[in-house]
């Protein structure tokens, strides 16, 4: 059940240029939050900026009641957020989203993320690993200056592949090609699932690959949002099964943000 609370900022770190990791105290929220959930942050209590900003949950420490999220400074809202100081209280709404990452029934969790889309995948990797799943992680970045969280993902993955588009760090190429290669060699496809979050072209490529090869796949989507609760019906995403001339929609905030790749047209 989502709640609204003022969470105290206890740690703040700029992990790469313009990307901030915030640790906040949110005991109630982490009790019920699941991997894939997000929160909505009201960065100012004035009418400007007006709407809350959706940000994924990166990591949770349930014993200590700590929730962590990571965001890139994009526009005005995230800029204001980045100026908050340790000790400040941040107005957050969450946990949001009924569509979360489901991994219980699989043996192998294949995680693929690109750029700032990798944040919601960490809690998934961590919990899957804790439950004894094999976790293979493939993270793609444009270049070496944008590579982040390598150490964190290493700790929660059995295998970690980092790629850069230009080869300036680690493997050169796209993360999906490394994932594909491992699936081609795999003998346990039915018990594996791909989990993807990242830029749209990457998601489309992953979705296409998974559907064509009958591989289980869950993808986390973004869309412009109003309320985050399923009230305003703003963040629509087309149901794959619905006809073009009479489309039907899910909503990212309520049905998602994580969907079965089969169900949505992106």
């Amino acid at each position: 059940m989502p709640i609204q609370t003022y969470a105290k900022l206890i740690k703040k770190e700029e992990i790469i240029k313009d990307v901030f990791k915030f640790s906040v105290k949110a005991e109630e929220m982490v009790k019920t939050a699941k991997p894939g959930n997000f929160i909505e942050i009201r960065v100012s209590n004035q009418s400007e900026p007006f709407l809350r900003r959706p940000i994924s949950i990166f990591n949770m420490n349930r014993e200590e009641g700590i929730l962590e999220f990571i965001f890139q400074v994009k526009g005005n809202g995230t800029k204001i957020l980045s100026k908050k100081q340790v000790g400040d209280e941040i107005d957050i709404l969450g946990p949001l989203g009924n569509g979360t990452f489901k991994f219980e029934k699989y043996n192998t969790v294949a995680i693929i993320g690109g750029g700032i889309g990798i944040f919601p995948l960490y809690e998934l990797a961590k919990e899957a690993k804790e439950q004894g799943k094999r976790v293979n992680t493939y993270l793609g970045f444009r270049n070496k200056d944008l590579v982040m969280l390598e150490k964190e993902f290493e700790e929660v993955s059995d295998k970690l592949v980092i790629t850069t588009d230009d080869g300036s760090y680690a493997e050169k190429g796209f993360a999906i090609d490394f994932l594909k290669k491992d699936f081609e060699d795999s003998s346990d496809i039915e018990n594996s699932c791909i989990y993807a979050c990242g830029p749209l072209p990457m998601l489309k490529a992953v979705q296409k690959y998974a559907l064509e090869n009958n591989i289980n796949c869950q993808i986390s989507l973004e869309e412009k949002m109003g309320c985050g609760l399923g009230v305003c019906l703003g963040c629509a995403v087309k149901k794959a099964s619905s006809p073009k001339d009479n489309p039907e929609y899910f909503h990212v905030c309520k049905g998602g943000p994580v969907f079965n790749a089969k169900d949505v047209e992106i």
């Binding site: 007006f50 709407l51 869309e223 412009k224 109003g226 019906l233 009479n246």
Partner: peptide, 20 residues
Amino acid sequence: KSGNKPPRVCETASGMLNSI
């Protein structure tokens, strides 16, 4: 009614637009 194509909402100065 299934509503309009997304994006359906966006933010503006002290407010928002919707075309649900």
